[in-house]
Design a binder for these strands. Structure first.
Lengths: 243, 243
DNA sequence: TTATAGTTCTTGTATAGACAAGTGTCAACA
DNA sequence: TGTTGACACTTGTCTATACAAGAACTATAA
């Protein structure tokens, strides 16, 4: 049984997504919601905090909780088709091509940086295509300590689903950096880059619920197919653009 | 007087930053902290949630709150100097050159997208340099409704400081998209780009505490000087990479 | 007409208490 | 020896209550 406040948050989220509450509307007041769902006000407040974090509402002291236009978040960008937009097209056809799969060690810079003691890892390199267009080259280092063996079949489908559903690993948080760098000849060939040699590089360190390091990923994106969307409250000092 | 839970959060944050608690350590248990600070356990829990959101700790049910290595977050990247790293160098010398400052309208795509009724805005275009190297071209559209007049002097220093400290505007949240796009001839010239015509474009829509739209910014970065760092919990569906 | 003050909404903060559920220890038992 | 079960810790959820503080409206007074 999920917690009450999460159920209520899910319910309110649905009502916003299905436009029972639309942008600019005020949600019922906390005491009103409290009576509606038959829970205490603190429980309602926990639910509303979930919506706040998700960027669905904005709370204004003395007034109430306003629904924010979700459509505002991903606003249109001049003549650029994002991966997500491609994804939503019906004729989309996503495929994965395994470039390499081997046993190795986590790269030295990461070992040093995290002071790792267990360094044995599985390396997977994969090319992702949409409608036969190459979009991303993903390189993963997955610690053998947590995932002893990865088959080609598993690498072909979703690794995360395998980790979470089959192995019961609880992935909890990740740190990412996004930069733009020159690509290697090989990656340029894989991504069929001709006009430029630059790719968008997303490096991720992924951790489990018990804070142990688990996976290092390097994603190299075609620059013309890359789009990153971020929603951030002012106070949050993380997730920040370094400028 | 700031809220207790924020003071306690600030205190714990300091203790982590000053390494009184280091990575891997468990914080005192919630009842222990509750006694230490002479507040209720719920108040302590609010404080710990702040640290959790900031990515400073990880809570493990049945065990406790573990300190996460903050240094892990911004990990080193091959031969790339970020703006932030440059910033921290002592010999850094940041300057701003105003390219244009005029009254105009918010771009049509934004007006349509947000269904704006008030569209009068001040337009500011600025070139940012570090050690005389051009780094970013910033273009801002700021609604006249909230900021009637912007002088060249104000545009020269921090606009945000002017908005928040002098005008008392409360900036609350923003949505950003990051893409890579070809630059105009003019921007290429300003950024002194020769090897490539690509720039990293960060578009931001900024909102006030009362959810009213306030500012639209287009930042065009030299690709070799751009770096974005992100920390995200798994459950959070926002701040996500679209892929 | 224009302020002012009060009233009644709203959300924000803080407390004390209760029980559920995950984790680890250790003693008793087979 | 090895397993089980009780126990004592931890964090997670939920309640009921109280007061503070911001916002909006209204009636009153100047």
């Amino acid at each position: 049984m999920r917690a009450k406040y999460l159920q209520i948050a899910a319910d309110l989220t649905n009502k916003i997504r299905h436009e029972q509450y639309v942008a600019g509307d005020f949600l019922p007041s906390e005491p009103a919601l409290s009576e509606l769902y038959n829970v205490s006000r603190e429980t309602i407040r926990k639910s509303l905090n979930e919506l706040l974090d998700a960027g669905l509402i904005q709370k204004i002291k003395g007034k109430g909780s306003v629904v924010i236009n979700a459509a505002r978040i991903a606003f249109p960008i001049s003549n650029i088709e994002s991966f997500d937009e491609l994804n939503k097209q019906k004729q989309m056809h996503a495929t994965t091509k395994i470039l390499e799969l081997k046993d190795t060690q986590v790269p030295l810079t990461i070992i040093k940086h995290l002071s790792l003691t267990e360094t044995a890892a599985t390396y997977v390199s994969r090319l992702r295509l949409i409608n036969d267009e190459p979009i991303v080259v993903d390189e993963d280092y997955i610690l053998k300590k947590y995932v002893p063996k990865i088959s080609a079949k598993q690498a072909q489908s979703s690794l995360y689903q395998y980790f979470e559903d089959d192995l019961g690993l609880e992935i909890d948080y990740a740190t990412k950096t996004i930069t733009v760098e020159p690509a290697s000849q090989n990656v340029m060939k894989q991504l069929q880059l001709t006009d430029t040699n630059l790719v968008v590089v997303v490096r991720s360190l992924t951790y489990l619920k018990d804070t142990s390091f688990f996976q290092y990923t390097i994603s190299q994106h075609r620059p013309d197919k890359f789009k990153f969307v971020d929603f951030a409250h002012r106070k949050a000092q993380n997730g920040g653009l370094i400028l």
